[in-house]
Design a protein around this nucleic acid. Structure first.
Lengths: 264, 264
DNA sequence: ATAATTATGTTGCGAAATGTGATTTTTATT
DNA sequence: AATAAAAATCACATTTCGCAACATAATTAT
């Protein structure tokens, strides 16, 4: 059986592999037909290349070609459906970290929306401030929650306020705990984001509040999004829904960050 | 040699799915005809794509295309149905008072939501700031609108920010025209409100902005709500959908306020 | 040099995706 | 309400793809 052939010095193939990965990185996808024409090799060869790269986890195979893992900047409606149980579990864990009367910040995102649901269900009396329109709209109908929304320009993608205004607005609160979203987690334990402004916002938020947790469902592990969140290691921890592969646990332990993945 | 590499590459299916979702997330809808033309595939193929995505719960099928699956609870949307034509008419009139590039403030309420619809449809490039979550959520998907939401505590009833925070936040804008809601109109021409805080907010708003109009549909005439809005006579005018009984017209004329009730 | 190994090409067939056209349903218009 | 236009639906034809087995060429090891 030909399982992971660990030889390092293949001579011909790597030339194609590099180009394939480059294309997928820049375009988000590549088709077998295009690649075969470009390299002037048979489609079977390309198929083998792609299979090899897919086994290494560098891309995802699809009918007719391959795509990057995070191909699409998924719309809000899609993201909220994906891994719903996982997000509910995260919400439960997060709610367990919150006490009566606290002031909580909730970032935009579907995972933080799940946290909002859990906090509303907890019956704790809380003051929650958020940058997300959807979260505010939900929370303002909950009898146990006082809801504040941070002012600023509203981003189309996130349906939330973004930019300097938000950072300025958050200064007026004495926030006990913040729950932040993110785009992915790099193998060395840094949380990453889709946009520069988002990463900046979150990194500033960490330094402004007492305690900050990231809430990231398990589909985010190993997913790479372009921007690193500068001081994500200063966060108190990361809340997720599944125990990650071994290494990551150690990485977090080294940084003094907690990694929460099951109800206490 | 390779002779069979001469096929044209179709767009990969997941790539279409991503683009479709992206469009629906940002525009709220997408038509089959447009999508088929864009990807250069048959309508049937797009139909299958949409069905696939609909089965996954990521969008909602309609005749001729698909729309964003609206997860938002009805809330205000029910109230907005009542006297819908009247409110639409008010929206049209209001939009006629707005010019390219202006900065507009929209109060909370269903009538102002109708104004928001009219402004979005006008294709004018505008900056709109609002205290209403529903209005912000709607406007942030409109390509011709830059949306700002004023920060503050969110009121359960209005689904909008209220209180001193809002007044403070509005100071940062140079607003060209504001459209305010209200609870009723007294026989002597004063606009009235349901709550103290609401009346205070609106009266302050009038003195802060260049030009303020009230938008009040005809059902509000003669209706008395508890609080008088102190300086409502300093507003530029009242926009409504029907010509009121004779006296009121004179009252407004005496005060130098315009009473707009039909499209110019 | 020869054998073993690896990379690539070729072919056939079942499966999946897409296209096409006839028919029914929905929507819009008068 | 009657009609026309647009879109959905369905069945079937066509294209494309994936997979596997095998053949051939290139590379490496002995």
């Amino acid at each position: 059986m030909s399982e992971s052939n660990s030889q390092v010095s293949r001579t011909l193939a790597p030339r194609r592999h590099g180009e394939i990965l480059r294309r997928i990185a820049s375009d988000g996808s590549a088709s077998i037909a295009d690649l075969a024409a470009f390299f002037d090799v048979s489609r079977e060869t390309i198929r083998r290349d792609l299979k090899y790269l897919a086994d290494k986890g560098q891309l995802e195979l699809i009918h007719g070609g391959a795509v990057r893992f995070d191909t699409l900047e998924p719309g809000l409606s899609e993201r909220s459906r994906e891994n719903a149980e996982g997000k509910d579990a995260i919400g439960e864990i997060a709610a367990g970290l919150v006490g009566e009367g606290m002031v909580v910040f909730l970032d935009s995102g579907t995972t933080t929306l799940a946290v909002a649901h859990a906090l509303a269900a907890s019956r704790l009396n809380l003051t929650i401030c958020t940058s997300s329109l959807a979260i505010a709209l939900f929370l303002c109908h909950q009898p146990n929650i006082r809801t504040h929304i941070l002012g600023g320009e509203v981003d189309r993608q996130d349906e939330a306020t973004v930019g300097m205004d938000v950072l300025h607005a958050v200064d007026r609160f004495q926030i006990d705990v913040a729950f932040l979203g993110g785009g992915g987690i790099s193998p060395d334990g840094d949380v990453t984001d889709f946009t520069t402004s988002g990463s900046l916002l979150r990194s500033q938020m960490i330094s402004k509040v007492q305690t900050a947790y990231f809430v990231l469902d398990s589909s985010k592990f190993g997913r790479l999004t372009p921007m690193k969140i500068a001081n994500s290691r200063n966060a108190a921890g990361v809340i997720t829904d599944k125990k990650p592969k071994g290494e990551l646990l150690d990485v977090f332990a080294d940084k003094g960050m907690r990694l929460l993945f099951e109800k206490p």
